[in-house]
């Protein structure tokens, strides 16, 4: 019994057939899972973004403004809301396609020198580099409404660079999915994907 001293020779008692079979199953399962996840890094098209830069929290807003200005984004209006539009993605030289979003209590913003957008407009099939950073506490980027659900942590002090290709047209919600204070549920934005 597990409540009393074990048999004196417990270390010498070999595993029974049941335990051996079960161990084999565990090993097979774990190995399969390990191989799948490591393999998917190299063959899969959906992996967590790996690129980041450390930016002091207080500098992120200006960094985002400069970045959006440089990427050639323009102002547009979608359903009565300001949006930042960038319809061309990364070019053959690996330049462009950068969109900077700033998360703060309790908005998602795409700031430029002349205006600050609430949402973004991008083109289907283009490759983008979406920069996510926070100017106060932790936030969570989550896209809902599209066929693809994605959730990324947004951390103050970092510019997290998400390379992605939107593959579905429509207008989707960007929400915050990390509790960030009393107005957490009022923090949302949108992403419109259009064909050009």
């Amino acid at each position: 019994m597990a409540l009393t001293p074990p048999p004196k020779n417990w270390q010498a008692i070999p595993l029974g057939r049941d335990e051996k079979l079960w161990s084999l199953l565990i090993i097979v399962m774990i190995t399969m899972m390990g191989l799948m996840t490591v393999g998917f890094v190299f063959v899969g098209n959906q992996n967590p973004p790996e690129e980041y830069r450390q930016i002091p929290t207080e500098d992120y807003r200006q960094y985002a403004i400069d970045g959006n200005d440089a990427s050639g984004a323009v102002k547009t209006t979608i359903r009565g809301e300001n949006a930042l539009s960038l319809l061309s993605g990364v070019d053959a030289q690996g330049n462009g396609g950068d969109i900077y979003m700033q998360a703060r209590q309790w908005n998602w913003l795409a700031p430029m020198t002349n205006f600050t957008a609430n949402g973004i407009q991008i083109a289907r099939g283009e490759t983008y580099r979406l920069h996510l950073g926070s100017t106060d506490v932790l936030h969570g980027f989550e896209l809902i409404g599209a066929d693809f659900l994605v959730t990324i942590q947004v951390v103050p002090g970092y510019d997290y660079i998400v390379d992605f290709i939107p593959q579905e047209t429509g207008i989707f919600r960007i929400i915050c999915n990390e509790y960030c204070g009393a107005g957490h549920h009022t923090m949302f934005s949108f992403m419109e994907v259009v064909d050009v």
Partner: peptide, 13 residues
């Protein structure tokens, strides 16, 4: 997951 948009380790065109 593999039905989703391409994200993460992308090679640029």
């Amino acid at each position: 997951l593999s039905q989703g948009w391409d994200i993460g380790r992308l090679t640029y065109p």
